[in-house]
Design a binder for these strands. Sequence first.
RNA 1: GGAGAGAUGCCUGAGUGGCCGAAAGGAACAGUUUGCUAAACUGUCGUACUGGCAACGGUACCGAGGGUUCGAAUCCCUCUCUCUCCGCCA
Length: 423
Amino acid sequence: MLQVNYIRENREKVLERLGARNFKQTEIIDQIIQLDEERKQSQTSLDNLSAIANSSAKQIGELMRTGNKEAADKLKAETTSNKEAIKSYGEQLAALEEKLFSLIVQVPNIPNELVKPGVGAEDNEEVYLHGEPAQLGEHALPHWELAAKYDIIDFELGVKITGAGFPVYKGKGAKLQRALINFFLDHATAQGYREMQVPHMVNEASGFGTGQLPDKEGQMYHAGVDNLYLIPTAEVPVTNLYRDVILKEDELPVKNTAYTPCFRREAGSYGAHVRGLNRLHQFDKVEVVQIVHPEKSYQVLEEMSSYVQSLLQELGLHYRVLRLCGGDMGFTSAMTYDMEVWSAAQQRWLEVSSVSNFETYQANRLKLRFKGNTGKTQLAHTLNGSALALPRIVASILENYQTDKGIKIPEALVKYTGFEYID
RNA sequence: GGAGAGAUGCCUGAGUGGCCGAAAGGAACAGUUUGCUAAACUGUCGUACUGGCAACGGUACCGAGGGUUCGAAUCCCUCUCUCUCCGCCA
């Protein structure tokens, strides 16, 4: 959520940059500025009346103590009308604040200057390309056929026990999953991230803190009885660890990592491109999260991007890095890099990571601040990235590393799997 | 699921109607002292909105929301959460 003061002081820039997102309801911005002005006036009036009431109450107390009951009663009578005014201003103020809040949560984050205007995926910028497409033979298979051929992932079995999009990993398939999780966590730890294990369900306040609620309500599984949400990403619990926290400047940067399963309803996204591991309702992911000083956040974004790329390089995958255009970025992000690996058999790119700087957008919702060495308290910047999401990595490994002898496990992963081939 | 207790500042914890934005201790920070470590002493030490160049003010906040009262951390109601015991159970 943006800060009202920022909007007020940078109206033109806000409108211009939101334009890069194709954000159309620009009148909201002026309504916010207007409402905030009214809010201030209302607040001031209320404060002044409260000050009078407080001082009257003190005087009455004093009069009572000194036994001057008559004067006390007189003053009491005078406070009655003031009381009503206070109540009325209080209600007015609450209504204004509620309205203001309902508007401000509708405004997405302001894209960074580097983010190009655009409406969708076709406007994203490719900023880096690594490697070459794997050259596969005549009989190359897509990963879902390889999964069936080697009996390592069973989609039908998942359908039976749960439903579509909940695969069962079997034998070496299951071991490959576990190997990747350990590989990713070990690398994150080596980069200075602290490994955390967090709940896989979160409450409403957490959902709001990172921006999933109220916006993407329908994308999360919700356990109605207890009003808890299954996490769509570890970002939610891991970032919310710092909700309502004021850190010391020396404690920055905070670097945490966690492996969790992720649950997404993916409502309305069925079709040709959801086959196999391409899009699931439950998948595994290792996430990295940082809380940093505002002046460092873009440098850290680049570091996180490089880190994610180093993982892809170690796995020997052909990938590209996109800087998302305004229209394709998430609601809460100021700048996002997507990493996509090449799926040789499907002949398409698959998103495996998304690294974002949220600047103060989440921090403002979370009330995540730090106290500067100068003594001033201000909002921190939050960032996160997938490092990495498993299913499409698995898809890419299966397809790109298929040989006549079976699936060759990437060199760097062998010490984690304990085997060199899936056959 | 049954019974009970509780929610106060970074922490412990006092506070049952006005002198309480809140005692005291601890932690932290700054300084003095000091051969070093430690200790001692002094000071600072919540957040938000708002007025002011500033100094310094105003208002709100003692889990949340209502109510009583001239006045509420303190009394009343509702809700939420936490803890303890019993039961069940990985």
